[in-house]
Amino acid sequence: MAELVTLTDHGLYCPQADLYIDPWKGVKRAIITHGHSDHARYGSTYYLCHHHSIPILKTRLGDIAVQGLDYGETIISNGVTISLHPAGHVVGSAQVRLEYKGEVWVISGDYKTQADGISQAFEPVTCHTFITESTFGLPFFHWQPQWVVMRQIQQWWERNRSDGISSILFAYSLGKAQRILANLDTSVGPIIVHGATHAMNEACRQAGINLPPTYRVSELPDASLSKGALVIAPSSAAGNSWLRRFEPYRTAVASGWMAMRGARRWQAADRGFILSDHADWHGLNQAIQATGAKRILVTHGYADLFSRWLIEQGLNASVLKTQFTGEQVNEPETEITET
Protein backbone atom coordinates (compact mmCIF):
# COMPACT_ATOMS: atom_id res chain seq x y z
CA MET A 1 0.00 0.00 0.00
CA ALA A 2 1.26 3.45 -0.85
CA GLU A 3 2.29 5.67 2.04
CA LEU A 4 -0.24 8.23 3.24
CA VAL A 5 2.44 10.91 3.02
CA THR A 6 5.46 10.84 0.72
CA LEU A 7 8.32 13.16 -0.02
CA THR A 8 8.44 14.65 -3.51
CA ASP A 9 10.60 17.35 -5.03
CA HIS A 10 7.77 19.78 -4.21
CA GLY A 11 7.58 18.77 -0.57
CA LEU A 12 5.54 16.53 1.72
CA TYR A 13 2.63 15.12 -0.29
CA CYS A 14 -0.52 13.21 0.55
CA PRO A 15 -1.44 11.45 -2.73
CA GLN A 16 -4.83 10.19 -1.50
CA ALA A 17 -6.00 13.73 -0.69
CA ASP A 18 -3.86 15.30 -3.43
CA LEU A 19 -2.43 18.02 -1.22
CA TYR A 20 0.91 19.16 0.07
CA ILE A 21 2.02 20.22 3.53
CA ASP A 22 4.36 23.27 3.57
CA PRO A 23 5.49 22.71 -0.07
CA TRP A 24 8.64 24.46 -1.17
CA LYS A 25 7.42 24.87 -4.75
CA GLY A 26 4.06 26.10 -6.00
CA VAL A 27 1.33 23.38 -5.99
CA LYS A 28 -2.42 23.30 -6.39
CA ARG A 29 -3.38 22.75 -2.75
CA ALA A 30 -1.12 23.50 0.21
CA ILE A 31 -1.70 23.11 3.95
CA ILE A 32 0.56 25.53 5.83
CA THR A 33 1.64 24.72 9.39
CA HIS A 34 2.75 28.28 10.17
CA GLY A 35 3.90 31.56 8.67
CA HIS A 36 7.72 31.27 8.77
CA SER A 37 9.28 31.62 5.35
CA ASP A 38 10.72 28.08 5.17
CA HIS A 39 7.19 26.67 5.66
CA ALA A 40 4.89 29.22 4.01
CA ARG A 41 6.10 29.74 0.46
CA TYR A 42 4.77 31.62 -2.47
CA GLY A 43 3.20 30.15 -5.61
CA SER A 44 0.47 27.72 -4.62
CA THR A 45 -3.12 28.07 -5.88
CA TYR A 46 -5.07 27.29 -2.68
CA TYR A 47 -3.83 27.55 0.87
CA LEU A 48 -5.29 26.02 4.01
CA CYS A 49 -4.12 27.02 7.48
CA HIS A 50 -5.30 27.90 10.98
CA HIS A 51 -7.38 31.07 10.75
CA HIS A 52 -4.91 32.99 12.91
CA SER A 53 -2.29 32.37 10.23
CA ILE A 54 -4.37 33.96 7.48
CA PRO A 55 -3.34 37.60 8.07
CA ILE A 56 0.29 36.46 8.52
CA LEU A 57 0.26 34.56 5.24
CA LYS A 58 -1.42 37.46 3.45
CA THR A 59 1.19 39.86 4.78
CA ARG A 60 4.01 37.64 3.63
CA LEU A 61 2.62 36.17 0.41
CA GLY A 62 0.22 38.86 -0.81
CA ASP A 63 -3.36 38.32 -1.91
CA ILE A 64 -3.59 34.52 -1.90
CA ALA A 65 -6.61 32.22 -1.92
CA VAL A 66 -6.64 30.91 1.64
CA GLN A 67 -9.09 29.04 3.82
CA GLY A 68 -8.87 29.02 7.62
CA LEU A 69 -9.63 26.22 10.07
CA ASP A 70 -10.05 26.11 13.82
CA TYR A 71 -7.96 23.78 15.93
CA GLY A 72 -9.76 20.42 15.98
CA GLU A 73 -12.13 21.27 13.14
CA THR A 74 -12.11 18.55 10.47
CA ILE A 75 -12.52 18.53 6.73
CA ILE A 76 -12.52 15.49 4.51
CA SER A 77 -10.77 15.26 1.18
CA ASN A 78 -11.16 12.09 -0.89
CA GLY A 79 -11.61 10.02 2.25
CA VAL A 80 -8.75 11.62 4.16
CA THR A 81 -9.78 13.36 7.39
CA ILE A 82 -7.75 16.52 7.86
CA SER A 83 -7.51 18.55 11.05
CA LEU A 84 -5.17 21.10 12.64
CA HIS A 85 -3.91 20.96 16.25
CA PRO A 86 -1.95 23.51 18.29
CA ALA A 87 1.83 23.32 17.82
CA GLY A 88 2.68 26.08 20.32
CA HIS A 89 5.35 27.46 17.96
CA VAL A 90 4.03 30.90 16.91
CA VAL A 91 0.62 32.54 16.54
CA GLY A 92 -1.51 30.29 14.33
CA SER A 93 0.98 27.42 14.21
CA ALA A 94 -0.54 24.00 13.74
CA GLN A 95 0.26 20.33 13.53
CA VAL A 96 -1.50 18.65 10.61
CA ARG A 97 -3.33 15.43 11.38
CA LEU A 98 -4.22 13.18 8.43
CA GLU A 99 -6.34 10.05 8.86
CA TYR A 100 -7.19 7.54 6.17
CA LYS A 101 -8.76 4.15 6.80
CA GLY A 102 -7.71 4.20 10.45
CA GLU A 103 -4.12 5.17 9.82
CA VAL A 104 -3.05 8.45 11.38
CA TRP A 105 -0.13 10.69 10.48
CA VAL A 106 0.80 13.91 12.23
CA ILE A 107 3.05 16.44 10.54
CA SER A 108 4.08 18.73 13.34
CA GLY A 109 5.86 21.49 11.41
CA ASP A 110 7.80 23.41 14.05
CA TYR A 111 6.71 23.11 17.68
CA LYS A 112 7.57 23.79 21.27
CA THR A 113 6.14 22.17 24.35
CA GLN A 114 6.59 25.15 26.69
CA ALA A 115 3.48 27.38 26.88
CA ASP A 116 4.40 30.89 25.77
CA GLY A 117 1.23 32.77 26.69
CA ILE A 118 0.50 33.90 23.14
CA SER A 119 0.26 30.96 20.73
CA GLN A 120 -2.09 28.21 21.76
CA ALA A 121 -0.10 25.65 23.76
CA PHE A 122 1.13 22.44 22.13
CA GLU A 123 -1.22 19.46 22.35
CA PRO A 124 0.08 15.96 21.71
CA VAL A 125 -1.97 14.12 19.07
CA THR A 126 -2.06 10.32 19.13
CA CYS A 127 -0.88 8.89 15.82
CA HIS A 128 0.91 6.01 14.11
CA THR A 129 3.51 8.11 12.30
CA PHE A 130 4.83 11.38 13.68
CA ILE A 131 6.95 13.75 11.65
CA THR A 132 9.10 15.79 14.01
CA GLU A 133 11.63 18.56 13.61
CA SER A 134 14.96 18.31 15.45
CA THR A 135 16.28 21.89 15.38
CA PHE A 136 17.52 21.58 18.97
CA GLY A 137 17.64 17.79 19.07
CA LEU A 138 20.81 17.43 21.13
CA PRO A 139 20.99 16.84 24.88
CA PHE A 140 22.88 20.13 25.21
CA PHE A 141 19.72 22.17 24.74
CA HIS A 142 17.62 22.67 27.87
CA TRP A 143 15.40 25.72 28.06
CA GLN A 144 14.79 27.51 31.31
CA PRO A 145 11.19 28.35 32.25
CA GLN A 146 9.96 31.29 30.21
CA TRP A 147 9.55 33.58 33.22
CA VAL A 148 13.26 33.26 34.02
CA VAL A 149 14.27 34.45 30.55
CA MET A 150 11.64 37.19 30.53
CA ARG A 151 12.91 38.43 33.86
CA GLN A 152 16.46 38.55 32.42
CA ILE A 153 15.23 40.60 29.47
CA GLN A 154 13.19 42.87 31.74
CA GLN A 155 16.16 43.52 34.05
CA TRP A 156 18.47 44.13 31.12
CA TRP A 157 16.08 46.71 29.67
CA GLU A 158 15.49 48.44 33.00
CA ARG A 159 19.18 48.63 33.80
CA ASN A 160 19.99 50.05 30.37
CA ARG A 161 17.13 52.51 30.71
CA SER A 162 18.41 53.75 34.05
CA ASP A 163 21.85 54.20 32.41
CA GLY A 164 20.15 56.33 29.72
CA ILE A 165 20.90 53.68 27.09
CA SER A 166 18.52 52.15 24.55
CA SER A 167 18.07 48.38 24.39
CA ILE A 168 18.18 46.80 20.96
CA LEU A 169 16.77 43.30 21.01
CA PHE A 170 17.18 41.17 17.90
CA ALA A 171 14.38 38.61 17.63
CA TYR A 172 12.47 36.78 14.91
CA SER A 173 9.71 39.08 13.63
CA LEU A 174 7.12 36.32 13.78
CA GLY A 175 7.02 34.47 17.06
CA LYS A 176 9.65 35.79 19.40
CA ALA A 177 8.79 39.45 18.89
CA GLN A 178 5.15 38.90 19.94
CA ARG A 179 6.14 36.50 22.71
CA ILE A 180 8.45 39.08 24.24
CA LEU A 181 5.87 41.86 23.88
CA ALA A 182 3.18 39.76 25.52
CA ASN A 183 5.32 38.77 28.50
CA LEU A 184 7.27 41.91 29.43
CA ASP A 185 6.13 44.60 31.80
CA THR A 186 5.71 47.22 29.11
CA SER A 187 4.91 50.04 31.54
CA VAL A 188 8.68 50.62 31.93
CA GLY A 189 8.99 52.73 28.80
CA PRO A 190 8.18 52.96 25.13
CA ILE A 191 8.76 50.04 22.78
CA ILE A 192 9.87 50.76 19.24
CA VAL A 193 9.65 48.13 16.51
CA HIS A 194 11.35 47.72 13.17
CA GLY A 195 9.13 47.69 10.07
CA ALA A 196 9.49 43.93 9.61
CA THR A 197 8.49 43.35 13.25
CA HIS A 198 5.64 45.83 12.92
CA ALA A 199 4.21 44.01 9.90
CA MET A 200 4.03 40.74 11.86
CA ASN A 201 2.62 42.46 14.94
CA GLU A 202 -0.13 43.98 12.82
CA ALA A 203 -0.92 40.61 11.25
CA CYS A 204 -1.22 39.06 14.73
CA ARG A 205 -3.40 41.97 15.92
CA GLN A 206 -5.67 41.36 12.92
CA ALA A 207 -5.88 37.74 13.98
CA GLY A 208 -7.28 39.01 17.27
CA ILE A 209 -4.13 38.69 19.38
CA ASN A 210 -3.73 41.35 22.04
CA LEU A 211 -0.35 43.06 21.98
CA PRO A 212 0.76 46.09 23.95
CA PRO A 213 1.12 49.36 22.01
CA THR A 214 4.34 49.82 20.07
CA TYR A 215 5.77 52.62 17.97
CA ARG A 216 7.48 52.69 14.64
CA VAL A 217 10.24 55.26 14.40
CA SER A 218 8.08 57.45 12.14
CA GLU A 219 5.22 57.40 14.69
CA LEU A 220 7.21 58.61 17.68
CA PRO A 221 5.49 61.74 19.01
CA ASP A 222 8.83 62.97 20.29
CA ALA A 223 12.24 61.75 19.07
CA SER A 224 13.69 61.98 22.60
CA LEU A 225 11.37 59.09 23.61
CA SER A 226 13.73 56.67 21.92
CA LYS A 227 16.29 57.25 24.68
CA GLY A 228 16.19 54.22 26.95
CA ALA A 229 13.48 52.58 24.84
CA LEU A 230 13.28 48.90 24.00
CA VAL A 231 13.78 48.39 20.27
CA ILE A 232 12.74 45.07 18.73
CA ALA A 233 14.20 44.34 15.31
CA PRO A 234 15.15 41.36 13.10
CA SER A 235 18.84 40.46 13.27
CA SER A 236 19.25 41.66 9.67
CA ALA A 237 19.03 45.21 11.09
CA ALA A 238 22.29 44.63 13.00
CA GLY A 239 25.04 46.88 11.78
CA ASN A 240 22.47 48.82 9.78
CA SER A 241 22.41 52.60 9.76
CA TRP A 242 18.78 52.38 10.94
CA LEU A 243 20.11 51.61 14.40
CA ARG A 244 22.30 54.69 14.58
CA ARG A 245 19.43 56.92 15.70
CA PHE A 246 19.18 54.94 18.97
CA GLU A 247 22.74 55.60 20.08
CA PRO A 248 23.89 55.06 22.74
CA TYR A 249 22.55 51.49 22.86
CA ARG A 250 23.31 47.95 23.98
CA THR A 251 22.36 44.97 21.82
CA ALA A 252 21.02 41.53 22.62
CA VAL A 253 19.91 38.51 20.63
CA ALA A 254 17.00 36.28 21.68
CA SER A 255 17.55 32.83 20.21
CA GLY A 256 17.90 29.23 21.26
CA TRP A 257 21.33 29.29 19.66
CA MET A 258 22.49 31.69 22.33
CA ALA A 259 22.89 28.59 24.52
CA MET A 260 26.16 28.10 22.66
CA ARG A 261 28.88 30.54 23.67
CA GLY A 262 30.39 30.29 20.20
CA ALA A 263 27.17 31.44 18.54
CA ARG A 264 26.76 34.18 21.13
CA ARG A 265 30.20 35.58 20.46
CA TRP A 266 29.64 35.21 16.75
CA GLN A 267 26.74 37.64 16.98
CA ALA A 268 28.96 40.26 18.57
CA ALA A 269 25.96 41.35 20.63
CA ASP A 270 26.33 42.44 24.23
CA ARG A 271 23.88 39.85 25.52
CA GLY A 272 22.37 36.59 24.39
CA PHE A 273 19.01 35.51 25.80
CA ILE A 274 18.33 31.80 25.41
CA LEU A 275 14.80 31.88 24.06
CA SER A 276 13.45 29.59 21.38
CA ASP A 277 10.11 28.79 19.81
CA HIS A 278 11.34 25.24 19.24
CA ALA A 279 11.27 22.32 21.64
CA ASP A 280 14.43 21.55 23.59
CA TRP A 281 15.85 18.05 24.09
CA HIS A 282 13.34 17.04 26.76
CA GLY A 283 10.51 18.74 24.91
CA LEU A 284 11.19 16.75 21.74
CA ASN A 285 11.46 13.47 23.62
CA GLN A 286 8.31 14.11 25.66
CA ALA A 287 6.30 15.21 22.63
CA ILE A 288 7.29 12.10 20.70
CA GLN A 289 6.45 9.84 23.59
CA ALA A 290 3.08 11.52 24.10
CA THR A 291 1.97 10.78 20.52
CA GLY A 292 2.32 7.05 21.14
CA ALA A 293 3.67 6.81 17.57
CA LYS A 294 5.83 3.81 16.77
CA ARG A 295 7.25 5.37 13.65
CA ILE A 296 9.06 8.69 13.77
CA LEU A 297 10.31 10.61 10.77
CA VAL A 298 12.88 13.22 11.73
CA THR A 299 13.31 16.35 9.64
CA HIS A 300 15.29 19.56 9.85
CA GLY A 301 17.93 19.93 12.55
CA TYR A 302 20.16 17.25 14.01
CA ALA A 303 18.09 14.63 12.16
CA ASP A 304 20.85 11.98 11.86
CA LEU A 305 21.80 12.06 15.51
CA PHE A 306 18.31 12.44 16.87
CA SER A 307 16.91 9.55 14.83
CA ARG A 308 19.80 7.32 15.97
CA TRP A 309 18.95 8.24 19.55
CA LEU A 310 15.25 7.40 18.97
CA ILE A 311 16.18 4.04 17.42
CA GLU A 312 18.18 3.26 20.56
CA GLN A 313 15.03 4.11 22.54
CA GLY A 314 13.23 1.34 20.62
CA LEU A 315 11.38 3.48 18.06
CA ASN A 316 11.27 3.00 14.33
CA ALA A 317 12.91 6.29 13.40
CA SER A 318 14.44 7.55 10.20
CA VAL A 319 15.56 10.77 8.58
CA LEU A 320 13.30 12.65 6.22
CA LYS A 321 15.24 15.10 4.05
CA THR A 322 13.11 18.20 3.76
CA GLN A 323 14.11 21.74 2.89
CA PHE A 324 12.90 23.22 6.18
CA THR A 325 15.52 25.08 8.15
CA GLY A 326 14.03 25.71 11.59
CA GLU A 327 15.43 28.47 13.76
CA GLN A 328 18.60 29.94 12.36
CA VAL A 329 21.16 32.04 14.11
CA ASN A 330 20.17 34.81 11.75
CA GLU A 331 16.62 35.19 10.55
CA PRO A 332 16.40 34.86 6.77
CA GLU A 333 16.15 38.26 5.10
CA THR A 334 12.68 39.73 5.16
CA GLU A 335 11.39 41.92 2.38
CA ILE A 336 10.92 44.85 4.70
CA THR A 337 14.04 46.91 5.28
CA GLU A 338 14.30 50.27 6.94
CA THR A 339 16.99 52.84 6.58
Binding site: L138, P139, F140, F141, H142, M260, L305
Partner: peptide, 25 residues
Protein backbone atom coordinates in the same frame (compact mmCIF):
# COMPACT_ATOMS: atom_id res chain seq x y z
CA UNK B 1 23.77 12.24 32.41
CA UNK B 2 22.55 8.79 31.33
CA UNK B 3 23.46 9.34 27.68
CA UNK B 4 25.32 7.12 25.22
CA UNK B 5 28.97 8.05 24.61
CA UNK B 6 28.46 8.57 20.87
CA UNK B 7 25.79 11.19 21.51
CA UNK B 8 28.00 13.09 23.94
CA UNK B 9 30.81 13.01 21.41
CA UNK B 10 28.57 14.19 18.56
CA UNK B 11 27.16 16.96 20.77
CA UNK B 12 30.71 18.02 21.56
CA UNK B 13 31.50 18.25 17.84
CA UNK B 14 28.51 20.54 17.41
CA UNK B 15 29.04 22.76 20.42
CA UNK B 16 32.77 22.87 19.80
CA UNK B 17 33.90 23.21 23.38
CA UNK B 18 34.16 20.20 25.69
CA UNK B 19 33.83 22.07 28.99
CA UNK B 20 30.72 23.82 27.74
CA UNK B 21 29.22 20.64 26.26
CA UNK B 22 29.60 18.67 29.46
CA UNK B 23 28.26 21.52 31.58
CA UNK B 24 25.22 21.61 29.28
CA UNK B 25 24.33 17.91 29.19
Amino acid sequence: AGLPNWLVEATWHTVGDLGETLAGI
